[in-house]
């Protein structure tokens, strides 16, 4: 998304040597981080990655790795609270939306 840019912080790792050029990553990425340059995908806009994990899951060659997660403050907060023994009964990272 060109209109909205976030902190350009992502755990996305791409290994072009493993890429088989199937183009699955282009089909699933909602920010079009990848582009097909010749026979392989190229990571053109890593900063736009939101770590949704769609590319890694849909890559049959295992060329993409990313720590998949939801960029939601509430979920992050509940994830922290769930680590506290007593609060674990009340909070789980999954309770929002």
């Amino acid at each position: 998304m060109q209109e909205f840019r976030y902190l350009e912080e992502s755990t996305l790792q791409y290994d072009p040597d493993k890429c088989i050029g199937c183009g699955n990553c282009l089909a699933v990425c909602p920010h079009q981080v990848f582009e097909l340059g010749g026979a392989k995908a190229e990571c053109r806009d890593r900063g736009a990655c939101m770590e949704c994990g769609a590319c890694a899951l849909n890559c049959p060659a295992g060329a993409i790795q990313v720590r998949q997660g939801v960029g939601c403050a509430e979920a992050v907060l509940y994830g922290w609270l769930a680590k506290v023994p007593v609060l674990r009964r009340v909070f789980s990272p999954d309770v929002c939306c």
Binding site: L7, E9, S10, G71, A73, A75, C96, C97
Partner: peptide
């Protein structure tokens, strides 16, 4: 505003974690 990150389709977990 920070809580609104969860409603957007472009914030990454790493970014939200850092700003929190």
């Amino acid at each position: 505003a920070m809580n609104y990150t969860g409603s957007t389709p472009f914030t990454s977990l790493s970014g939200v974690d850092r700003e929190m």
